[in-house]
């Protein structure tokens, strides 16, 4: 039981770190510190991804999120960071409302999770099952062997299984790519420096 212990240990360390960082993001009034706490939280999440064998996703998380998105966010913070905006207080009443709502929500979610029953949900995963980037790439390209058998539909018929395996994520991938491109162009357009409306008015 050495392996699970390691897994459990790592999980607890990472999960607590992640959770605490996320909570800190919420609690910190200073926006710059929030950004830093978010960085920790995202990194913790990436660690968890590595822990459950999603190496590629974890890597992507680090590269895109931590390296790209968060930098973007920090840029935003810096661009707009003027004295008054660094820390803007929210009223205690609002805080109270929000915390009550948040705790309630959390309770509801946890209650739902605890009541759920998942197929194989408690079976430990062997390291052999960890998915490599190669597998993911093949699956995106629609390589048959890489595509997991379609058991989610509850269909065990081998003949139909064949057709199921033809499924690929190439098209969604492309769509997402194009979508990303469009969004970036749009963002560039929106963020372009232009005369303030107030100046004209």
């Amino acid at each position: 039981m050495k392996f699970p212990d390691l897994h459990a240990t790592l999980f607890w360390v990472l999960a607590i770190a992640t959770a605490l960082s996320a909570i800190s993001v919420v609690l910190t009034q200073n926006i710059v510190r929030s950004a830093v706490w978010l960085l920790f939280s995202l990194c913790g999440t990436a660690g968890l991804f590595f822990l459950v064998g999603a190496d590629f996703v974890g890597a992507t998380q680090l590269i895109v999120y931590v390296g790209g998105t968060l930098v973007l966010v920090v840029f935003g913070v810096m661009l707009t960071a003027q004295g008054p905006f660094i820390s803007m207080k929210t009223s205690a009443v609002e805080w109270a409302f929000s915390v009550v709502a948040g705790v309630l929500f959390l309770g509801v979610l946890v209650a739902s999770i605890s009541q759920g029953t998942w197929v194989g949900g408690f079976v430990a995963v062997s390291p052999a099952d960890s998915t490599s980037a190669v597998t993911l790439g093949e699956s995106l390209l629609g390589v048959t062997d890489a595509t997991p058998p379609a058991k989610l539909l509850g269909n065990d018929n081998p003949d139909q299984l064949l057709e199921r395996t033809r499924m690929s994520y190439l098209l969604p991938f492309e769509i997402v790519s194009v979508h990303l491109l469009v969004v970036l162009i749009g963002a560039a357009y929106l963020a372009r420096a232009k005369r303030r409306r107030g100046a004209a008015a």
């Binding site: 991804f49 999603a54 590629f56 996703v57 992507t60 998380q61 895109v64 999120y65 790209g68 998105t69 973007l72 966010v73 840029f75 935003g76 998915t131 597998t135 993911l136 699956s139 995106l140 890489a146 595509t147 997991p148 994520y169 969604p172 997402v176 979508h179 990303l180 969004v183 970036l184 749009g186 963002a187 560039a188 357009y189 929106l190 963020a191």
Partner: peptide
């Protein structure tokens, strides 16, 4: 594979969303 692919998509979309939101 599906779970990870979805996670990838979410990351990508989050990035796009962040870009647009920051703009």
């Amino acid at each position: 594979v599906e779970g990870q692919v979805f996670a990838l998509f979410v990351i990508v979309l989050a990035a796009a969303e962040a870009a647009v939101a920051l703009a």
